[in-house]
Design a binder for these strands. Structure first.
Lengths: 117, 117
DNA sequence: GTATAGAGTGAGAATCACTATCGATAGTGC
DNA sequence: GCACTATCGATAGTGATTCTCACTCTATAC
């Protein structure tokens, strides 16, 4: 399961993971895929986000707070950390009287490999 | 339709908008709500995001690029602009060889009114 | 004033991702 | 070997969204 996630370059949808497992000869059920993915997401071993189509996308991640730079063409994702944004988000929240502030940041673009053709 | 969106303090789900319209005596169909919302989103008159439950949330927005500071308790949303993040996102994209870079940023927290009780 | 074409609408069916349930099976301790 | 438990896969169910289609309303031509 984790191996399958590792094999993917970027984000993979639950549907895609299920299909890939079946294709590789593992007759795993939809329910199991969702169960395992939810557990992994709970324990912070994978990142879970919703895409525009409403599908849940999972990705093998290093633990800890970070953001992603995602290629819109191939789905490859680069992990990004920045004290700048963390500080900015905190400040914006505080300036508006918000408490318990957290944030989501995603950067999209076309990676050099895809841009090259 | 726009008036109904304007009446909401923050984000409103398609379901909620539909319910509110029906409640206010406008026997509008689900299909129409989604049609209009999609059109409005296409023309940039409303912002469309997906929440964790996979529902589409719509919000009346000022046109142009900006981000939101959203109260997790009441849903109230404050529009936020910052050259800092724009610059940072561009830089991160460029540093990793990405082109056509854009980004999504959402900040969450509890607003002072909700924190007060 | 009447007929017709066209766009827009609402109700309900269909679809899709996801979740809950349930019976079957494998594993464990006695 | 037997009873119990945990886990799994299949399947039915759920809820949001989209599609379909018949209907209505408006504008235009006659």
């Amino acid at each position: 399961m984790l191996a399958t996630l590792d094999a993917a370059p970027g984000f993979a949808s639950a549907q895609a993971i299920h299909a890939r497992l079946r294709a590789s000869g593992t007759p795993v059920g939809m329910a199991t895929v969702y169960r395992v993915l939810r557990d992994l997401a709970d324990t912070g071993q994978v990142d879970m986000v919703r895409d525009d189509a409403g599908e849940q996308q999972y990705r093998r991640c290093t633990p800890g707070h970070h953001h992603h730079l995602v290629c819109v063409a191939c789905g490859r994702a680069v992990e990004v950390e920045s004290a700048t944004v963390e500080r900015w988000a905190d400040e914006v929240g505080r300036a508006n009287g918000f408490t318990g502030v957290h944030h989501d940041v995603e950067i999209f673009g076309t990676c050099s490999r895809c841009a090259a053709g």
